[in-house]
Design a protein around this nucleic acid. Sequence first.
DNA 1: CTGAAAGCGCTTACAG
DNA 2: CTGAAAGCGCTTACAG
Lengths: 328, 328
Amino acid sequence: MVAEAAGVSPSTVSRILNGTAVVADEKRQAVDAAIARLGFVPNPVARGLAGGRTLSIGVVTQAIDSPFYGVALRGIEDELDKAGYSPLFVSGHWNAVEEARCIEMLRARRVDGIVVLGGRLSDAALRACAKALPTVVTGRMMKAPNLFALNFDNFSGARLATEHLLALGHRRIAFIAGDPGHPDAMERERGYREALESAGIAYSSALVAPGLFHEDGGLAAAEQLLEARQRFTALFAANDQMAVGACLALHRRALRVPDDVSVVGFDDLLVSRHALPPLTTVHQPAYELGQIASQAILQMLRGEKPTSTMPAPRLVVRESTQRPSPRP
Amino acid sequence: MVAEAAGVSPSTVSRILNGTAVVADEKRQAVDAAIARLGFVPNPVARGLAGGRTLSIGVVTQAIDSPFYGVALRGIEDELDKAGYSPLFVSGHWNAVEEARCIEMLRARRVDGIVVLGGRLSDAALRACAKALPTVVTGRMMKAPNLFALNFDNFSGARLATEHLLALGHRRIAFIAGDPGHPDAMERERGYREALESAGIAYSSALVAPGLFHEDGGLAAAEQLLEARQRFTALFAANDQMAVGACLALHRRALRVPDDVSVVGFDDLLVSRHALPPLTTVHQPAYELGQIASQAILQMLRGEKPTSTMPAPRLVVRESTQRPSPRP
DNA sequence: CTGAAAGCGCTTACAG
DNA sequence: CTGAAAGCGCTTACAG
């Protein structure tokens, strides 16, 4: 080790670098000086091998270019960085097999912990992962040793969105659902239904169409609804991407938002602020999601039990919703 | 090493794992069997320490949630994965100091090569980086040993966009410029000017405003132009994000796109296909950018000299442009 | 073709 | 408080 040019043993250097033990001030200064002089930078690879800690956290996201999770990744980056950890990003592409490969790869690289954002891994697979490493998972609710789950209240969020429309006076509210089978999608649909019921409005399956959580799906769903000549004055899409697609479908039929139909989305993506018109939507705090997940894994690494939860859903009213205009 | 339970020496196992030397078939099979049986997975950390190769490539991007670079990251991921390499993503946030820290960190982690996407690092800093590691840089033109630069033809792209507007019959074409001092921004502005000049139209600085490459900047720039009561029938924004912001400004003044003003952007972000109206823009192949950069670094690692270049710019005509309507 | 040995750059018990 | 030693899991010359 270069820095022992300071006249002490490598052990001592290691100790002061890691704060593992108290070291005489004299030696500490000699070492600090040598480090500065040599421009020494410790090798995390060797550290990982020897110490069993790599100071890196594996994060399996679904797509590195996801407009929603991208922001979460940023929260993870920032939070981990403060603690001297680095994230290792891998993409599972919403595919359990790939996600499993990702986790294996991360383990091979000896990350200290794993956070998985969404995804389709079974609870059992996650539980197995947690046996080997501290793991936090978002987008589902579950309990297991060495595992922390962080979930957003999709149900209340969706109810909020629907109630907003109801409060404006809308009665015929179409719904564009997400990916069938996806827990978020199911919870959001449940919120929509329950809000309707509470208002004494019967749920009509003719007013709902699946949009697969992406723009083209939202567009197709809206077209399908329009094609079927369903009458509705408002539309709630289970995410902003589908809402944007739906707006395009509406536009193609010369229907104006919000004059002819009010639209509300879900997620509050960065781009939604600049949609035409700026989209009313329920804000999902992606950045905080990343932060909280990171804090949780860091806490687990310190042997603490994470307790934080996600902020409650919040409706952001912009310009895509208004009272229904009297039909001619 | 566990796998020597196969009855051979660790060296032999290592050799067959790495294909470093020819090994007797008999031993190879014994080892393969043992590996399969034990579920052995080599430890890249140790490999990195011992062999000097970590099979990882550092990629410094500017923001992990950038709508443009996100797609490039995906190209990098896919291409590296094929070759058994993993990307290590770090964000420089368009800040030379942070980018330098990123590179240091990557070097500490002993990546085998570095690709830097855009950014504000000086050529000298990059040259220095290349002294230590094969490096590829995008978004600028430069030559240095052990360094490969990959640049998109922003100039021609911008000319294409402007010529499209000109061909439609527009004469008064406003321009929303990017980040002053940014090479891409300068090239795009140059393309705009040159197209104008070739058409015999005088460049007027009153028709250009800086938009800083983001939505709010584009919105502000458009407002400024409108405020100044500049007359224009078309608007070219130096990237899609600013174009979207400009559309919002236009919308606020009840100006319709493309009826009242045609708008063209630059980049062809995923979201631009679903803008209202779908945006005419010049396509910049982000995914390919990532792919080519990865291939280049891989080639350099093999001792080859990369030669690939970026595809030429291509205009994607959608619905935000049309012939100018006769003014009342 | 294949071992035995040394070493990659650190850390962690183990003794003072 | 601080060395000397052993070891993390692999690879690479060096000899056969």
